[in-house]
Design a protein around this nucleic acid. Structure first.
Lengths: 337, 337
DNA sequence: ATGAAAGCGCTAACAG
DNA sequence: CTGTTAGCGCTTTCAT
């Protein structure tokens, strides 16, 4: 910057002002401004954002904490967050905390020390103590996918309850009265709501629910495999499975195939999370689709409005509808008496 | 920091030294050091990495440029880069440049202005002019997935040639003599090598290659659909398809299903990129697996060694083997005479 | 074993 | 319309 200024015989202040688009404001002559642009370009000068950040106490940087970026559900969300952030001049620092609450905590501290202007967080989700502090610290933050009623914080999630309710109701309409549920990580809002939807669909139809039909303890592929194995080994096999995530479904399918069973002839299935490949599975899968790209976009928009506003921002909760995509994995059962 | 220093009645210099782990070096008394740690923790003091970065001219930050983070191939690579980076104290700034060379250029400039210590780049890959400048700028950089022979720069890629060669040879061994190739983005090293492998497998077997069997122009789902449609509408349909990416395969499968054909009875198929769902497709897919997590890990390791060394780093090229995973999508043809 | 002070590159009062 | 100057929070030389 020194050099640029010297070359034109002008002060670095002027250079700074022109390059930060404040030429107008300070009524700098067009001639000077043009010269600055020209020389800066020639010399390949590019302002140091680190120094700038230190001075203006704003880094134009957001933090993004994700439990597993290789999960297509999260990577799609991440994509739309990053794209929108960049559109508004923010860079995104990514942290994959590997489904580990301790890492989540460390990531938050790290990002704070890097002076991010805001934070988007997909929490592991069983525990919110460590989130309390940061929400209260005044750092703009929005939570995605999971939420905590006790936290005064904006969030954007899917309507997991209704999504599950519709899916299970659809199974019941097809005369399934013994439906297994392979749930995800217990004590997360996502799971609680999906299981609640499952239960309420049963309740609505006055079908008694055998509690042992609910199995599983996390959202992974392995958990789906184990859950399905358990369900399939029951004395009376359920006629359908409701799976709480795409990964669970993959694991469950392995178990089902291993047992020599066919979807939907031997057992019907509905899976949460639509995927590009859902249509091309052994049996095209009926799924509960979430609006992942919208989740990402809205998350950034919410954060952006917080970062812009001076005052303590109001908390906004966005709940996006899901959509039941009917394919071929559910068979209509004959009513036997 | 002021406050911490004041509270113990010591200079900020001392606080800085203790907190940056240099207490030993400056032979600061254990008593003082302990006090510093204690008070800093009490006050919730956490050093400002932005100020630190400005002063020491190193941000402990790397840039990661990816064409599409929602593609599971890239998101897995990104994951292992980020995880390793964090292990060594680096934060990762992510940029999804949406398969657009112009955005790739902008992202590079942006990351430079943010003073990243190094850069990992999955280039769009047809053009390398803009990369020349940055490689020569001395910024540590490693290129992933695609590469440019003219660039003196470390890279880590899969052995695309051999992967394709093995896949197509396998088809030929199963007596397929009319194999369609749905290629990816032309003029990328990835595609060039895969198509070269395809050609050489033909050549090795002395089977004449009808050039019109090579179709397609990008790695996306849509391109796979179009490519397959073209192949399937030929007077004499190929007996097998070699697909250059996971997304291409998804599109191709759609076309195949639409035509009422079955894999592998009507047409055999091999796809590049193994996926968690490959085993559960209509027909379990025979694939060419790349070592994505290793690619990510090695990419960071290469970058790290560059960032540590003072001298101009040597360029290292790592080529990882692929693995043919045989499932059920290839049928052994009878030899007809 | 510790401190004073300079300075990283930039911006914003304040002063013309 | 432009320049002078102080200072963001930290590290590091030099001094003691």
């Amino acid at each position: 910057m020194q050099n640029v200024a010297a070359k034109i015989g002008v002060s670095i202040t002027t250079v700074s002002r022109v390059l930060s688009g404040q030429a107008e404001k300070y009524r700098i002559s067009k001639r000077t401004a043009d010269a600055v642009f020209k020389v800066a370009a020639e010399m390949g000068y590019v302002p140091d954002q680190v120094a700038r950040g230190l001075r203006i106490r704003r880094t134009n940087t957001i933090g993004l904490i994700i439990p597993d970026i290789s999960n297509p559900f999260f990577s799609t969300i991440a994509r739309y967050i990053e794209i929108n952030a960049r559109k508004y001049g923010y860079s995104t620092i990514l942290s994959d905390c590997q489904e580990d609450t301790q890492m989540e905590i460390e990531s938050i501290h790290l990002l704070q020390s890097r002076k991010v202007d805001g934070l988007i967080l997909c929490p592991i989700g069983e525990d919110s103590d460590h989130l309390m502090a940061i929400v209260n610290s005044g750092l703009p933050i929005v939570i995605v996918d999971r939420y905590f009623p006790e936290l005064a914080c904006s969030y954007v999630i899917s309507d997991n309850y209704k999504g599950a309710f519709e899916a299970v109701s659809y199974l019941i309409e097809n005369n399934h009265h013994s439906i297994g549920c392979i749930q995800g990580r217990i004590n997360t809002s996502v799971n609680i709501n999906r299981v609640r939807g499952f239960r309420d669909a049963y309740k609505k139809s006055n079908i008694p629910l055998d509690e042992s039909l609910i199995v599983g303890e996390n959202f992974g592929k392995k958990d789906g495999y184990i859950g399905a194995k358990i369900l399939l080994s029951r004395k009376t096999r359920p006629t359908a499975i409701f799976s709480a995530s795409n990964l669970i479904s993959l694991g469950a399918m392995r178990a089902i195939l291993e047992e020599g069973l066919t979807i939907p002839d031997d057992i019907s299935m509905i899976s949460f999370d639509d995927q590009p490949y859902s249509d091309y599975l052994v049996t095209p899968m009926t799924t509960v689709a979430q609006q992942t790209s919208e989740i990402g976009q809205i998350a950034f928009t919410l954060l952006h409005s917080q970062m812009k506003s001076e005052s303590k921002p109001m908390v906004e909760s966005i709940i996006l509808p899901t959509k039941l995509i009917i394919r071929k994995s559910v068979k209509k059962l004959e009513l036997t008496v």
